[in-house]
Amino acid sequence: MKINLSGHHVDVTDTVKQHVEEKFAKLANHFPTLIALDIIIAKEHGEYDVEVSTNYEGTRIAAKGLDSVMYPAIASAAKKLDAALKHRKGHLKADLHAKPEVTAPEIAYEKVQEMDLR
């Protein structure tokens, strides 16, 4: 999984990159079709704002973490993105297992009787 990391009013150092890779490594294992993450770390008004967005199975999914310290903001964004991806995966799995509608034999018999088969 490719991680595109950028900073806005924040220096993105090697330790920040390493911390981001550690936090988002679990996502690569749970969602193997996930190709890339776009992460923006910004500092505005004394708070760190971490925005994470990605495309997963045809849908754009984003999460945002806010905190006065950078590392908890990254962890919060990772947790929210994980929850959003699990939610989307659940929707995809639920669509695969939709039960077909079955009519009862007596209803089917009545439907055939109502048809004009001449």
Score class of each variant (00 low, 15 high):
Ser6Glu: 06
Ser6Asn: 06
Ser6Arg: 12
Gly7His: 02
Gly7Met: 02
His8Phe: 07
His8Arg: 11
His9Asp: 11
Asp11Met: 07
Val12Ser: 00
Thr13Glu: 07
Thr15Asn: 04
Lys17Gln: 14
Gln18Thr: 11
Gln18Tyr: 09
His19Glu: 06
Val20Cys: 04
Glu21Thr: 13
Glu22Tyr: 05
Ala25Val: 03
Ala25His: 09
Ala28Lys: 14
Asn29Val: 09
His30Asp: 10
His30Met: 13
Phe31Leu: 11
Thr33Leu: 15
Leu34Gln: 05
Ala36Ile: 01
Leu37Ile: 01
Asp38Phe: 08
Asp38His: 12
Asp38Tyr: 13
Ile39Cys: 05
Ile40Val: 15
Ile41Asn: 00
Lys43Pro: 02
Glu44Asn: 12
Glu44His: 11
His45Pro: 04
His45Tyr: 10
Gly46His: 03
Gly46Ser: 11
Tyr48Ile: 03
Tyr48Gln: 04
Glu51Pro: 00
Val52Ile: 02
Ser53Thr: 11
Thr54Lys: 13
Thr54Leu: 08
Asn55Met: 13
Tyr56Trp: 10
Glu57Gly: 02
Arg60Asp: 12
Ile61Ala: 13
Ile61Leu: 15
Ala63Pro: 07
Lys64His: 15
Leu66Thr: 14
Asp67Val: 01
Asp67Arg: 01
Ser68Glu: 15
Ser68Ala: 13
Val69Gly: 01
Val69Thr: 12
Val69Cys: 02
Met70Pro: 01
Tyr71Arg: 07
Tyr71Glu: 12
Pro72Lys: 10
Pro72Ser: 07
Ala73Phe: 00
Ala73Asp: 08
Ile74Lys: 00
Ala75Met: 07
Ser76Asp: 10
Lys80Phe: 04
Leu81Met: 15
Asp82Leu: 14
Ala84Ser: 15
Lys86Thr: 07
Arg88Met: 07
Lys89Asn: 10
Gly90Asp: 10
Gly90Lys: 06
Gly90Phe: 01
Gly90Cys: 07
Leu92Asn: 08
Ala94Asn: 13
Asp95Ile: 09
Leu96Lys: 15
Leu96Ser: 09
Leu96Trp: 10
Ala98Glu: 14
Ala98Lys: 14
Pro100Val: 05
Pro100Thr: 10
Pro105Leu: 11
Pro105Asp: 11
Ala108Met: 12
Ala108Trp: 09
Ala108Thr: 09
Glu110Cys: 09
Glu110Val: 03
Glu110Met: 15
